[in-house]
């Protein structure tokens, strides 16, 4: 919950503010208020992505890549610019310019143009910067405001606890992410690769002998060579088998069925005939065991969805003009 940490202090202030609570409820029910004719941003503001910014983007892309962007690449780049601009305007509409860091930055900018910088207060200088429009071109102010707006929008969701039903539905829809892998318990007859250079062939002959003589598993196990590999391996996952016996062995063994000796399977030590003693299929972990993880993922997804939704809606609040493109 990294969002919680850096949201806590300013977010508490915002959450307690009645104005914010009203704005949040209004934002959630924006469809109705929109039809009724009242919107968060009282006027549909014209917002233009400056042509020089698009030119700079195009120039940088060509310099880096050596060709113009494809239509798709260009559309994606422009969309990001539009989203940033919308969030910037949204942040201003919410009064986020009052943020301490922004005020200080605005005051810094204004010092260059203030006739008496030492006599003016920080608030005064910041006001002057806004009046002169210096904030709009300052990348630092823009970045702070855009980031703050994103965090605020997502924070509305991230601060909350998802409803149990939603958690259960998400859990059901993504059960493969919460699955305990299959486990297997085996016994094995090893053919030591250093005793028998043609160990695969040797293993095959052993298998034929076991079948022709109808040896029971205990008798068959006595045919094994000595290797570092244990004769019996307890119930474990493919990952566990890989650590002990190698990846090829682990992958092959997990496909075996109980009740018969396998064909020769290679391992780190040679070849093996494997008998499956027990197989436990993969099972979805109960929700109780992974609830915290599921809730976290649900909130992240909801927050991302909410941000996307909110951006789509906010776009309708502005008259966005992109030179060379229909708004």
């Amino acid at each position: 919950m990294k969002a919680l940490r850096w949201l806590r202090a300013p977010a508490l202030r915002w959450l307690k503010a009645p104005a914010f609570q009203m704005a949040a409820l209004g934002a959630l029910l924006f469809g109705i208020t929109h039809v009724a004719g009242s919107t968060l941003v009282p006027h549909k503001k014209r917002v233009e992505i400056p042509a020089h910014r698009l030119e700079a983007m195009l120039r940088d892309f060509k310099a880096d890549v050596g060709r113009p962007p494809t239509r798709r690449e260009w559309d994606q780049m422009v969309d990001m610019q539009v989203d940033d601009e919308v969030l910037y305007q949204y942040a201003i509409a919410l009064g986020m310019r009052e943020n301490t860091a922004v005020q200080r930055r605005l005051a810094q900018i204004a010092e260059f143009v203030d006739a008496n910088p030492h006599e003016s207060t920080q608030a005064g200088k910041a006001r002057a910067a806004v009046e002169l429009g210096l904030d709009e071109g300052d990348l630092i102010v823009r970045r702070i405001l855009v980031d703050s707006a994103k965090r605020l929008i997502k924070g509305v969701v991230l601060m909350q606890k998802p409803r149990p039903q939603v958690v259960e539905e998400f859990y059901a829809a993504h059960s493969d992410e919460f699955t305990r892998p299959a486990r297997i318990r085996i016994s094995q007859i090893a053919v030591n690769g250093f005793l028998h250079p043609q160990s695969e062939e040797y293993a095959r002959r052993l298998l034929e002998r076991i079948r022709s003589e109808k040896l029971d598993p205990e008798a068959a196990l006595r045919l094994a060579d000595e290797t570092p590999a244990p004769v019996h391996l307890d119930l474990q996952t493919e990952q566990g088998l890989r650590s002990q016996m190698g990846g090829d062995f682990a992958a092959a063994v997990m496909t075996l069925q109980p009740g018969s000796w396998s064909e020769p399977i290679p391992s780190d030590y040679g070849y093996h005939l494997v008998w499956v003693d027990e197989y436990e299929p993969a099972q979805v972990l109960p929700l109780a065991a992974v609830r915290e993880q599921v809730e976290s993922q649900v909130l992240q997804k909801l927050a991302d969805d909410w941000l996307r939704l909110r951006l789509r809606e906010l776009r309708t609040e502005f008259d966005i003009v992109v030179p060379g493109r229909e708004s």
Partner: peptide, 29 residues
């Protein structure tokens, strides 16, 4: 507006607003 409102409503329905306010930081299981 209706489409977005309904989606927003479902999002609203997905989360609860407990009186306690902030969710507690996740603790190890």
């Amino acid at each position: 507006a209706v489409r977005l409102a309904s989606t927003a409503a479902s999002l609203l329905a997905a989360i609860s607003f407990p009186n306690a306010g902030l969710a507690q930081a996740a603790k190890p299981a």
